[in-house]
Amino acid sequence: MSCLKKCGAPSIEELRASPGFPTEEDYKTGNIAVIECIEQIPCNPCETSCPRGAINVGNPITNLPTIDLSKCTGCGICVVKCPGIAIHLMDINYNEDSAMITIPYEYLPLPQANDTVTLVDRMGKEVCEGKVEKILSSKAYDLTKLIKVSFDKKYYEEIISIKRI
């Protein structure tokens, strides 16, 4: 039984079986977009928003997105454009001990830079604490904020978001 259709969130196995999800080798390349889109829904803003043409959906628009990570600069525009809030950036080489995740965020209140926040996994379970490095907002983001949080890199595959404050 699919975890996605039972618990609401995809399992790591379901994600690994999808074409947009990075391999372990991919993660090592630096700050990359992690696409967690595993169902054929009619949608392609990730493709059309990418300034480098790194993401491909093609025709029909229900194809699952694929990404050419050699073209991905980790700019984050696909993260805010994805209507499914299904993309984040992950940089496992942020520094020696920490990884940095960049998440789309649409709740209030917003954390502040340097705040300590709790990071959660795909089921909302608290995993570890992290530090808010930066909060980005821009007119092009259309009110979605990007929050950059650093955390212990050993959890990079589990972490998906922060706990609401």
Partner: peptide, 14 residues
């Protein structure tokens, strides 16, 4: 519903 919708509420702990 779409998995992306369920996933964003699941990660909020619902």
């Amino acid at each position: 519903g779409y998995g992306v919708h369920t996933a964003k509420v699941a990660r909020a702990g619902v």
